[in-house]
């Protein structure tokens, strides 16, 4: 009797793992946490009968690590621009058969043929956004238009910069007129010195990442560097806040859908990507996540409230001034970017 009880007890622990779908077609999709409207997956299963096994990953770096360990583990992945570049360079990307992704036609004109995938052979944009300045209209004296405003002494102790190497070094480079993906030694030293100058002038209130949004909503600083997605959420909660893409240009980032070269279900993956590009589905995802949609069909469906919003849907010429980050070689990150960034963070 006791033995039976024990076996039953042991069986109780096994039940969760037996519930996985069997006999169905299965697709392995790897994405980040909170980065999809999950009901989309059920819709896909209803319409196509394909079960999506949805696997979470933390960020681009962990995605690459997992992909390198088991190259055939995923059918669809969601890398950012620079990671697309790296995955293509590592010859780990499958060419997409665009004749079977007719919905890719909805992709916004200015997001096509990006620098990270110049012939647009491997990737389809999923979400995108910009880097810019969020400012409090009551706390600034004139119009905010330029990165140089972040060096204006009248905003002393009133600027929140980003605690993020690529973005903040990028701003230091951009304000001096260089590319945000510079690999030039002189330019990088100059950018770091510019950022140290900003800190030593007492202009920087803090270097933050996740906290910025709440602090700006609370009116704790006049200016802050943010991503457009955060800017939109902040402006929704505090109507004194507005967002600008500086005139010098800025970073535009794009997260993409891709198929790894060794994906076990290439055909189903194409079907999934096409489904994700369908305007109503793209709309569901964009509304759930709050980032900008690259899908013109979805933008139309979301109506005036979205398309008239310059944070979510910036003018094409603003985006044209922006640049997509290039992948910085690991050796250069190690030898220059990281030490210079530590120097900025250590400066007093």
């Amino acid at each position: 009797m006791k033995k039976l009880m024990l076996i039953l007890l042991a069986l109780c622990f096994c039940v969760p793992s037996l519930s996985a779908a069997e006999g169905k077609k299965v697709l392995y999709v790897c994405n980040y946490y909170d980065y999809i409207d999950e009901s989309v997956l059920e819709l896909f299963e209803q319409e196509t009968g394909i079960h999506v096994e949805y696997i979470y990953t933390m960020d681009n770096e962990s995605l690459l690590q997992e992909l390198e360990i088991s190259p055939a583990a995923f059918d669809v992945i969601f890398p950012s621009d620079y990671m697309v570049e790296r995955i293509i360079a590592k010859d780990m990307a499958a060419e997409l058969d665009f004749s079977r992704i007719p919905n890719a036609e909805y992709t916004l004109e200015y997001l096509r043929n990006p620098a990270y995938d110049p012939e647009n052979k491997y990737s389809v944009p999923y979400m995108w956004g910009t880097l810019g300045i969020l400012y409090n209209k009551d706390m600034v004296t004139g119009p905010v238009t330029s990165w140089a405003d972040l060096w204006d002494p009248q905003y002393a102790n009133n600027v929140i910069m980003m605690d993020s190497l690529r973005d903040t070094m990028g701003i230091g480079l951009k304000v001096l007129g260089y590319s945000m993906s510079s690999t030039d030694e002189e330019e990088l030293f100059a950018a770091a010195d510019k950022l140290i100058e900003q800190k030593q002038l007492g202009i920087v209130r803090a270097y933050q990442l996740d906290e910025t949004k709440d602090r700006m909503i609370g009116g704790e600083a006049a200016l802050a560097v943010v991503y457009s997605g955060d800017a939109w959420v902040a402006a929704e909660s505090n109507d004194k806040l507005d967002y600008v893409i500086p005139q010098e240009g800025s970073n535009v980032w794009v997260d993409n859908m891709m198929i790894p070269k060794q994906a076990p279900h290439y055909d189903l993956a194409l079907e999934f990507i096409n489904f994700m590009c369908r305007p109503d589905i793209a709309q569901m995802n964009s509304e759930e996540i709050g980032y900008s949609s690259p899908n013109s069909g979805a933008i139309e469906l979301m109506g005036e409230e979205y398309s008239g919003n310059h944070i979510q849907n910036p003018a094409g010429e603003d985006v044209d001034r922006c640049e997509i980050y290039h992948d910085i070689p690991a050796e250069l990150l190690d030898s220059l970017y990281n030490p210079l960034w530590n120097d900025v963070m250590n400066a007093r």
Partner: peptide
């Protein structure tokens, strides 16, 4: 990070940064 605005690195931040960002 939460109270000091990351304006000076502490050893804990340096270690965290070295692991996660670098």
């Amino acid at each position: 990070v939460m109270l000091g605005g990351s304006k000076r690195l502490m050893l804990g931040n340096l270690i965290e940064q070295t692991f996660t960002k670098q």
